[in-house]
């Protein structure tokens, strides 16, 4: 962003605009380091180790994954993960069949244990949700059948 648009936006939106612009200039301050290795990992275990420090998980029935049974288009698979557990530190979403299984890690310092987003899946396989609660990892899986892959050319 250059100075001109900054000025324009500040004038147009008043105090809110200034706050946004100020926020824009320092986006990286509060963030944890981006775990590049975790996203480049080729299997679920090493991705989890890199992202969350461990890959020992307990299967839990208390994690709900809402995803379609059959996804027509693998490029857009809506996935919602929620859990009734308390003290949830993070929710991660992985796809076992993707080249790089780790899709996203959501750290939740003050949010409810609920995230909803849309992911890409290369082919039919399991969506894995990993919840970190009280320092331990819990997981759940759901199979999604993909008729058109989302990661091909």
């Amino acid at each position: 962003m250059n100075r001109r648009t900054l000025l324009k936006r500040s004038l147009a939106a008043g105090a809110v605009g200034v706050a946004v612009s100020a926020g824009l200039l320092t986006p990286g301050q509060v963030l944890a380091a981006y775990p590049k290795d975790a996203f480049a990992a080729k299997d679920v275990g090493s991705a989890l180790k890199a992202a969350l420090g461990s890959d020992s998980m307990t299967a839990s029935g208390d994690i709900k994954i809402k995803a379609p049974d059959i996804a027509e288009n693998g490029a857009v698979v809506p996935v919602t993960v929620s859990t009734g557990m308390g003290d949830v530190e993070s929710i991660s979403i992985l796809s076992e069949v993707n080249q790089n299984p780790l899709i996203a890690v959501f750290n939740l310092p003050a949010a409810e244990p609920y995230v909803s987003t849309r992911i890409k899946m290369g082919k039919t396989g399991n969506v894995v949700a990993v919840v970190k609660s009280g320092g331990k990892l819990y997981s759940a899986k759901k199979e999604v059948k993909v008729t058109i892959g989302g990661c091909g050319g």
């Binding site: 959501f106 939740l108 003050a110 609920y114």
Partner: peptide, 24 residues
């Protein structure tokens, strides 16, 4: 001004990403 959610994303989030979450 208080951080409630931080998402770390790979390339496998769909194009034009959608995100929904809840907080108190």
């Amino acid at each position: 001004d208080k951080l409630v959610l931080e998402g770390l994303w790979g390339g496998a989030i769909s194009k034009n990403p959608y995100l929904s979450f809840k907080y108190k």
